Computed example of a mutant assay.
Amino acid sequence: MTALPQERRVLTAIPGPKSRELQTRRTAVVAQGVGSVLPVFTARAGGGIIEDVDGNRLIDFGSGIAVTSVGASAEAVVRRASAQLADFTHTCFMVTPYEGYVAVAEALAELTPGDHAKKSALFNSGAEAVENAVKIARAYTKRQAVVVFDHGYHGRTNLTMALTAKNMPYKHGFGPFAPEVYRVPVAYGYRWPTGPENAGPEAAAQAIDQISKQVGAENVAAIIIEPLLGEGGFIEPAKGFLPAISEFARDNGIVFVADEIQSGFCRTGQWFACEDEGIVPDLITTAKGIAGGLPLAAVTGRAEIMDAAHSGGLGGTYGGNPVACAGALGAIETMRSSTSTRRRRRSRPS
């Protein structure tokens, strides 16, 4: 339980005087390109409530952009991360490893879809995870092209801006972008010309035709898609679309990547959104909700694909930081407990 009362309380104008003062200080020293939706400065947060510097308590609908899925300052996250802070804050896993990184990889192997042998590599952000998924797919297939979809969002680095469909605010004025990225239609049911009932098979056929004719399936290293699109509109691809694209990838030796950075870790009622239609991706990228607010990301996938990159080809100074790994184990502990409770409630006789 959090010590912060789970109730809305408004004491001042929004933003209040202390937040306005901090906003003045921010304007003087923080780059204008770093925007904020609401100029309210947080003092503390717990569960689903943020308390600002003026004492107002606001319902946290933003959840740190899909991050604090287990609530802000969740007990297990704080407990495990605090214990790790007391032991050591950093060594770099590539220099001298530690158990937390291995434990997170073990949990990901268990929780992600599919019963095949899996391995993981840990990073700092979702964009890093997507970039490394592309690196791994290219190393495995010895191909170059990457296929993405209309309305998709995959990050703000140069390669992930190229993968992202939305110009403003993510891409405008920041090009040129990485080459060998190809975009095809997604099954957007509500806007499909012949109706949502036809969107899945028709969009899949159109996408596959474009890939085959304009790129060549034999040139495609990876197909990357969010099973639930989150930035170009919250779009659930029409039924049948994801299975058809996944099958096309499998038949043509293409690595199918599920970008579950926003949709993963119980945000859709299941551990991962791709489980809704029984999709088992070759690689799955995770971040955001994985660590209860601490910066961590992962690529998890088939062991033979993950092992395609040469030793030293994957990593980063802070990737899989021990404190973030501890937070992830706390978030997963909380989610396991919640899902077990829901299963017990559903199994009770009425």
Rank of each mutant, 00 (worst) to 15 (best):
Q262D: 15
N252F: 05
A258Q: 08
Q270C: 07
A221G: 08
C266Y: 07
F272T: 03
G233N: 11
E236S: 15
D251Y: 03
D259E: 08
W271F: 08
K239H: 14
I224Q: 07
F256M: 14
F241P: 11
R250S: 15
Q262T: 13
A222D: 06
Q270W: 12
I254S: 02
A273L: 05
I245Q: 01
I235Q: 07
T268E: 08
G233A: 14
I225P: 00
L229M: 13
E260W: 01
N252W: 04
L242H: 04
E275S: 14
S263Y: 00
I223H: 01
A249K: 00
R250P: 03
A273G: 04
W271E: 00
A222M: 10
S246H: 12
W271R: 01
I254T: 03
E275N: 11
Q262I: 14
I261A: 12
L229R: 02
V220Y: 00
L242K: 04
I245Y: 02
S246E: 13
F256P: 11
A221T: 03
L229D: 02
I223P: 00
C266K: 01
A273P: 05
A217C: 07
F241V: 06
A244Y: 01
C266A: 11
A222T: 09
P227K: 05
D251N: 15
E247Q: 15
I224N: 03
I254Y: 00
E236R: 15
G216E: 09
V215S: 09
I245P: 07
E260K: 06
V215C: 04
E260H: 03
I245T: 11
E226R: 08
C274Q: 09
G230F: 09
K239R: 14
E247F: 01
E226P: 07
F248T: 09
G216L: 09
K239P: 08
P237A: 08
E236Y: 13
D251A: 15
E236P: 02
G230S: 14
V220P: 01
